[in-house]
C-alpha cells in the first residue's frame, strides 16, 4: 500500500532544479507528480517517479541528498467536495496531514492525492473503512 516518495534537498540556487531533472532524464526516470516546499535558503523537492529505487540510487550517486519516504496515494473523484470527504474522515479520527499534493491520473480522470501522515497503518484502516480508495504502489508508479 505504501508508495515510495523520493525527496531531495535543494539549495535555493538558480538552475539546481533543472540539473536534477536532467539527471532524471538521462536515466530514463519519469516524474508522476511533484511538489516543491521552500524556505528562504533551501527547499525540499518531493516526487513520485516510475522507479523510486533507481531514482534514489541515481540521485545518491550524482551527489544529491535524498531520502525515500513512505506516503499514501488515495484516489478521489475529481469533483467539488471530493477531497473534503476524505479529510472529513481523517479529521474525525484525529489524523494529521504532514503535507500533501495531488495530480490527475490519466486513465479514469480521477484525482490522486499524495499524503504524508504520521501513522500510515491507522490511516489506511480509517480510510478503507470510510470507503476511500487507496492506490497500490505499482498502480501509482505505472500511471
Amino acid at each position: 500500500m505504501y508508495v515510495k516518495q523520493i525527496s531531495v534537498f535543494l539549495e535555493n540556487k538558480a538552475g539546481r532544479l533543472w540539473e536534477l531533472t536532467e539527471v532524471l532524464r538521462d536515466n530514463g526516470l519519469n516524474i508522476r507528480a511533484l511538489s516543491l516546499a521552500d524556505t528562504t535558503d533551501f527547499g525540499i523537492l518531493r516526487m513520485i517517479v516510475n522507479d523510486p529505487e533507481q531514482a534514489f540510487q541515481t540521485l545518491k550517486e550524482t551527489g544529491f541528498s535524498s531520502a525515500e519516504t513512505d506516503v499514501l496515494v488515495v484516489e478521489i473523484p475529481d469533483r467539488p467536495g471530493g477531497l473534503a470527504e476524505v479529510l472529513k474522515i481523517m479529521t474525525r479520527d484525529g489524523i494529521n496531514v504532514e503535507y500533501m499534493y495531488a495530480f490527475v491520473e490519466k486513465k479514469k480522470g480521477n484525482a490522486a492525492v499524495v499524503m504524508r501522515v504520521e501513522d500510515l497503518e491507522r490511516t489506511i484502516s480509517v480510510l478503507t473503512e470510510g470507503g476511500v480508495t487507496i492506490l497500490k504502489a505499482e498502480e501509482v508508479y505505472a500511471m
Binding site: 516518495q5 525527496s7 533551501f42 525540499i44 518531493r46 545518491k60 541528498s65 535524498s66 531520502a67
Partner: peptide, 12 residues
C-alpha cells in the same frame, strides 16, 4: 548529507 536530510521542512 543523507544522514542529516529529513523529508520535513520543520525538521530541517
Amino acid at each position: 548529507g543523507e544522514e542529516l536530510f529529513s523529508d520535513e521542512i520543520k525538521q530541517l
